Computed example of a mutant assay.
Amino acid sequence: MTERVKETFGGYGTGAPPPAPAALAAKVRTLAPSMTRSVQRVAEAVAEDPAGCAALTVTGLAELTGTSEATVVRTARLLGYPGYRDLRLALAGLAAQQRSGRAPAITTDIAVDDPIADVVAKLAHDEQQTLADTAAGLDTTQLAAAVSALAGARRTDVYGIGASGLVAQDLTQKLLRIGLIAHAHSDPHLAVTNAVQLRAGDVAIAITHSGATGDVIEPLRVAFERGATTVAVTGRPGSSVTRYADHVLTTSTSRESELRPAAMSSRTGQLLVVDCLFVGVAQRTYEAAAPALAASYEALAHRHRSVPR
C-alpha cells in the first residue's frame, strides 16, 4: 500500500460543505443502499417528511424511527452535516421548497401492465430526477480538478464494465474528437496491463455505480500506485473504489425496480458527469479542441457524401 492510499473511504465530513437542502433527498437515495438498516430508517424518514422531522428534537426523531440519538447524529453526519441542528435547518429549507412546488415529486415505479404512454412519462420523469439529483450532488471543486488533470494529460485510460463500459467508451470517443489520447478498457486483463504503463501526468478514470466492481478497482489501483491522477465516477461515495481515487465524482440514480435495473438508471447520471468532463476539457483546450472538432465533423461529412445512396 502506498502513501497515496486514502485512510478513509470518501464520504463526507472531510471539509466539504454541507449539501444544500435541494440535494438532501438525492443524497439519501444515493447512500441508502450502503447504509445500515437503522441509519436507513432515519434517512428515509427525513427524506419522506422533511417538514415533520424538522419539527422534532434529536430525541423525537430517534423515537419516531425506533433508533437511538447516536444513530440520528450519525445519520446527519453521513449525509454531510456537522450535526443534527444543521440537518434540521436543511429539512426546514427542503420543506419550504416542497410547499412552493419546487421540490421534485417522488418517483413512481413502472408496473407490468402500465400503458406505453405511462411508461414514457414515468421514464422521462425518472431520467429528469436522476439528472437533477446528480447535478445537485456533484462536487464542482472535484469536477474542476478532474477537468484540469484531463486537459493536461499525456494519456487517459477509462475503465468500465457492462453499462458503465458503454459510458467509458462515450467519454473516450469525445476526448479523441478533440485531439486527446484516450482509451476505454472493458477487458479487465487489458485494463491492468495498460494501467502498468501509466505514470505521473497520465489520468485513469474508473466508472462503477456500485463502487465495488473488482475488475474496475484493480486497474485504478495499479494506475494510482504508478503515479497517475485517478478519478472515480460512482454512485457510492464511501465505496472501495474511492480508496484509489484522487478525485471522486458522485452520480445519483432513481430507485431500482424490476423493470428498471440499476444499470439502466445509473447510466443517466454517469453520462451527465461524462458530458461535464468533456465540455470542461474542451473549454480548457479550446484553441486545439475547436479545430479538431471541425476536422472530425468534416471527415464524417465527407464520408457521408462519398457513400453511394
Score class of each variant (00 low, 15 high):
2 T>C: 11
3 E>M: 13
7 E>N: 09
10 G>H: 01
10 G>A: 06
10 G>I: 05
15 G>E: 08
15 G>V: 04
16 A>I: 05
20 A>C: 00
21 P>R: 09
21 P>D: 07
27 K>S: 07
28 V>Y: 02
29 R>Y: 04
34 S>T: 14
35 M>G: 01
40 Q>T: 06
41 R>L: 11
49 D>G: 13
49 D>F: 06
53 C>L: 04
54 A>R: 04
55 A>C: 02
56 L>K: 00
61 L>Q: 03
65 T>Y: 01
70 A>R: 12
70 A>D: 12
81 Y>F: 08
82 P>C: 09
82 P>L: 08
86 D>R: 13
87 L>R: 06
90 A>T: 06
92 A>M: 10
94 L>Y: 07
95 A>H: 03
97 Q>G: 09
101 G>E: 12
106 I>E: 11
106 I>L: 10
108 T>R: 14
109 D>M: 07
111 A>P: 02
119 V>N: 03
128 Q>G: 09
136 A>F: 06
136 A>K: 04
146 A>D: 02
148 S>F: 00
151 A>D: 08
154 R>G: 15
154 R>D: 15
160 G>D: 04
161 I>Q: 07
164 S>C: 07
166 L>I: 14
167 V>C: 09
169 Q>F: 11
176 L>Y: 03
177 R>N: 13
177 R>G: 06
181 I>F: 11
182 A>V: 12
185 H>Y: 13
191 A>S: 13
191 A>H: 04
193 T>H: 14
193 T>P: 04
195 A>D: 05
198 L>P: 00
198 L>F: 00
200 A>Q: 13
206 A>L: 09
208 T>Q: 00
209 H>E: 01
210 S>R: 07
214 G>Q: 11
215 D>Q: 10
216 V>I: 14
219 P>N: 03
221 R>S: 10
222 V>P: 00
224 F>H: 15
227 G>M: 12
229 T>R: 11
229 T>K: 07
233 V>I: 15
233 V>N: 01
238 G>Y: 04
242 T>N: 06
244 Y>N: 09
246 D>E: 15
246 D>G: 15
251 T>A: 03
251 T>R: 01
252 S>W: 05
255 R>F: 06
257 S>C: 06
258 E>A: 14
259 L>V: 09
259 L>P: 01
261 P>H: 06
267 R>W: 06
271 L>Q: 08
271 L>T: 13
273 V>Q: 02
273 V>T: 08
274 V>R: 04
275 D>I: 07
277 L>V: 11
278 F>A: 14
280 G>T: 11
283 Q>I: 12
284 R>S: 13
284 R>F: 01
286 Y>K: 11
291 P>C: 05
291 P>I: 07
292 A>L: 10
298 E>I: 01
298 E>S: 11
302 H>C: 11
303 R>G: 02
305 R>C: 00
307 V>M: 04
307 V>D: 00
